[in-house]
Amino acid sequence: MLTIADKTFSSRLFTGTGKFSSRQTMADAITASASELVTMALKRVDLNNDQDDILEPLLNAGVNLLPNTSGARNADEAIYAAQLAREALQTNWLKLEIHPDPKYLLPDPIETLKATEKLSEMGFVVMPYVHADPVLCKRLEEAGAACVMPLGSPIGSNLGLKTKEFLEIIIEQSNVPVVVDAGIGSPSDAAKAMELGADAVLVNTAIAVSRNPIAMATAFKEAVTAGRRAYEAGLGSRSLQAEASSPLTAFLDTI
């Protein structure tokens, strides 16, 4: 079981709600993933045309909601967005993301640290999305982050764990849960992150843009479970030389 702040999760797969072709597919994929924590974004209501109510199916699915601050370019905007999110969804849980540059959507570490300090003081459960920077992750932990969410590769890129070696350092050093977020493109990426010892992964694009999001959500669920089980069982050590797994008894020498 995974505990973050005051909540306990049986599933170590968190999912996003973006990019699905329909509300129904989104809801079915989330159910198939068995995810218990699901991200949402905020937007201004379009008074003339607003039909995309995705809240209802999520509430029906019984998942916990994790609003994000996507769109915030600095700490002040993120803090404002956080308070709006808390009002809208009646939760103090928050995925803090501050990315000033829309091309790579890489998180601003300085603004993220500032916002984490303030939002933690304000009683938010802050889950900051950051680069896989081990020093920054420790600073966020000291600033009151409930967990850290280092990226594998840029958001939506499906490039997988480009930051693997740094994720390993973060996992080794962290006293708060480590949730690998962003860039996980396949179930094997998710399994790999779990084998490294990540406490959870957050997956959105790879499920949503699949030809069959529901089957893909199931595949991710199984990969996360398998990866976690392997981590708990303990992986064998690596060697550059062969280590025989069959006895070398030379029984054929006399033939």
């Binding site: 949402m40 607003d50 969804l89």
Partner: peptide
């Protein structure tokens, strides 16, 4: 303005209201 004050908060001429809702996102 928090939800519990919506019924007591009367709007004034020229007020600029921001109405935000939750939407799909990762």
């Amino acid at each position: 303005i928090s939800r519990n004050r919506w019924s007591a908060h009367t709007l004034l001429e020229g007020d600029e209201i921001t109405l935000i809702k939750a939407t799909a996102g990762g």
